[in-house]
Design a protein around this nucleic acid. Structure first.
Lengths: 211, 211
DNA sequence: TGCATTTACTAAACACTGTTCAGTAATCTT
DNA sequence: AAGATTACTGAACAGTGTTTAGTAAATGCA
């Protein structure tokens, strides 16, 4: 094996080590506490070394944004086995909310923070394929529902965006802490999980009526 | 007028000047570019002076969070004159989205950022009255709709949270830049305003069916 | 094998952030 | 007039992301 191969391998391995360290810190302590110096300390290199492998901090977090989408899309893929599109839609709703509840930092990185999306504003040729994959799964399921006669007269795209907006809104109002602070949430349901579940159930009931 | 009155008045005036400077910078340049040093420079005092009037930066931004809610609730109040609750609900939807589109930084401060909400986590006796006011207006309008026989069988609270989630989701997917990057948004509708309007219209069509 | 070149990495610097503190000038009180 | 208080400041502290000049190690070549 050549010297060049070995050096190239070391370069790639170090890049992976940096990302793994960033991910561990990010999952343990969140975005704010994941600094370039803390990543460097964890991998026992200096902060300057990281810049040999990643353009800047945003590029590291964009790589984590991609990892988050791989995780979510894996959950969605399992649902492909659900034959009835409406049941699949419901299952997607549950999966999406569970994902946000169990991975709030990843969820923020994927769907809330505008920084990872800046890469697409700088490079207009680059496309948000990972977001597109997730949205397409939803959109295709909506089209299958409509092919079955559900949601007659509704536009598939508008409907898909509406579904995503509702799920996203429910997730972010919860993770940001706004939902918690509404008095009715504090007093009328046992906890925030119950509010989220109840609101989702109301939404599903609406969908049942529109079938 | 006593010396104490004059000094107290100066203290309050300086506090207002600080907030006004913060607001101007915030509206011109956004949250990231509104630093304690930039506020201090604008009012021609040192950064340390600000800490005589505000506990920390979060308290300044919480004051701006309150101003944002005053603005929104003023828009909502105008809708009280809309007699039919369903028409009022629709108008609220438009007002909410227009507010987010025209005041994205305020919107983020009010409904997205978790920092202003931390004041309620630290002081459990303190309540999010401003958010409660806005939500109550929505909730009351939903109850009036149900009193008129609309949305039969739906729970008012779940329905209200569902409405808020949908509007909030639509607003934040747009302001964060995620909606822009979906291929269908780029190719099938003229611009992001059209997507938002179209998705809202789809949602309203659903509500019409559920009446 | 020795020297020149290249590479990988670093310490330190830069420019910025939020916040605190010891010191000081001005104002107020006695 | 002197002492006390207040309002404010410069500088420090501890942190951030990023860059750069310098250096040791590795590599290539004559």
């Amino acid at each position: 094996m050549g010297i060049n191969d070995r050096k190239q391998r070391h370069k790639e391995e170090l890049k992976d080590i940096i990302l793994k360290a960033a991910k561990e810190l990010f999952l343990e302590k969140g975005y704010e506490a994941t600094s370039m110096r803390s990543i460097a300390e964890k991998i026992e290199y200096s902060p300057a070394t990281i810049y040999l492998h990643y353009k800047d901090k945003a590029e590291i977090f964009y790589a984590l944004h991609l990892e988050g989408f791989k995780l979510l899309v894996n959950y969605f893929k399992v649902l492909a086995s659900v034959a009835d599109p409406f049941e699949r839609l419901k299952a997607m709703g549950h999966v999406y909310i569970n994902f946000a509840n169990e991975n709030p930092d990843f969820y923020n990185l994927m769907f809330v923070m505008s920084e990872p999306m800046e890469v697409f504003e700088l490079d207009h040729a680059k496309e948000w394929n990972e977001g597109e994959d997730a949205f397409r799964f939803l959109h295709n399921t909506v089209i299958e529902c409509m092919d079955k006669g559900y949601f007659k007269g509704m536009d598939a795209m508008g409907f898909s965006f509406m579904l995503w907006s509702t799920m996203h809104g429910l997730c972010t109002l919860r993770t940001s802490g706004h939902l918690d602070q509404v008095r009715q949430v504090k007093t009328q349901l046992p906890d925030i999980n119950a509010v989220t579940a109840f609101t989702l159930q109301t939404f599903i009931s609406m969908m049942e009526r529109l079938k």
